[in-house]
């Protein structure tokens, strides 16, 4: 036990001891200078940002005044039956777009995910698939939607294209991770029975990932509903179209109704998605 040899100040290493009697909190960085350099750099970045974005208290305060006017003109939200009918129409369009885009996006994602699973795919395919995923994830959905509107014209088709495109990056990345986590022992066992590559996939891989696949699909559907509510801002169909139109006509009370509709659709989708995912897993 420790108490049998208590280190007294007179023990042979007392010189050492005298030296080590100072203590400073160890830093998570390589050393103290790195730490102050990083902190300094972050601080400089923030100061530079605030200065060049021209964020001043005066602008804030005058903005709050306009904010009050804005809220005032939003209340009460528009409830005219004709406008509500248009709203419901666009709501259904929003949901329909998300449905189609989810199915199409996942259909395209499957081969990409297989290609991006390091344990199942050869190197060149792997890097190609990872590249597709990076591009799809990096470009914001609205940018894709604008390009789609120009290529395909106004309407839900452009929205579906944009949302499907964004689905590929998300779904392939996460599904590839699941594929990489599968137990290869099971696949080998199937292979040992003399199964072909396709049979190996169907019997060895598919059963292991079906629950995760279903969960991910529903999760992505939920995200797609969110995207679907706003791609219309650039003309790609759904509730966003109404939002953009009423905003540019300063019909802020209708904007308020549309925002409420968006929040409601998103919330319902989130709840449905949570319930289904719990059932599946």
């Amino acid at each position: 036990m420790a108490t049998e040899s208590p280190a007294s100040p007179d023990s042979p290493d007392s010189l050492d001891a005298a030296e080590r009697r100072t203590w400073r909190r160890p830093t998570a960085f390589r050393n103290r200078y790195t730490k102050w350099a990083v902190y300094g750099a972050v601080l400089a970045l923030v100061v530079w940002s605030v200065a060049s974005l021209w964020i001043t208290p005066g602008r804030f305060i005058s903005g709050l005044g306009y904010g009050y006017e804005l809220i005032d003109s939003m209340l009460p939200p528009e409830t005219g039956s004709e406008n509500i009918a248009r709203l419901v129409d666009r709501m259904i369009e929003t949901i329909a777009m998300a449905m189609i885009a989810t199915v199409a996006g996942i259909a395209i994602s499957l081969p990409v995910a297989l290609g991006a699973a390091g344990n199942l795919s050869p190197r060149p395919t792997y890097y190609l698939s990872r590249g597709i995923i990076s591009v799809s994830r990096a470009i914001d959905g609205l940018i894709v939607a604008i390009v789609a509107v120009i290529a395909l014209g106004f309407g839900p088709l452009a929205g579906i294209f944009a949302i499907s495109f964004k689905t590929i990056g998300f779904f392939s990345k996460l599904f590839a991770e699941d594929l990489e986590d599968i137990d290869m022992g099971g696949v080998e066992a199937i292979e040992a029975t003399g199964a072909s590559r396709f049979q190996r996939l169907v019997y060895g891989v598919v059963p292991q990932v079906v629950p995760r696949f279903a969960g991910l699909a529903v999760y992505r559907w939920d995200i797609n509903i969110r995207s679907s509510t706003i791609v219309g801002i650039v003309g790609a169909g759904g509730l966003g179209v109404l939002l953009q139109r009423s905003y540019s006509r300063y019909e802020y009370d209708y904007v308020a109704s549309i925002l409420i509709a968006i929040i409601a659709v998103v919330l319902v989708a989130e709840i449905v998605s949570a319930v289904v995912r719990r059932r599946v897993q």
Binding site: Y66, L259, L267
Partner: peptide, 29 residues
């Protein structure tokens, strides 16, 4: 938490452009 997460950045930006005028301040907020 719900309201903040349900409304997309671009929609928030629309509203804040009305408040702060066009520019990076509205985008930051």
């Amino acid at each position: 938490v719900t309201v903040s997460r349900s409304v997309h950045t671009i929609v928030w930006a629309l509203l804040f452009v009305v408040m702060f005028g066009p520019g990076a301040l509205a985008g930051t907020v």
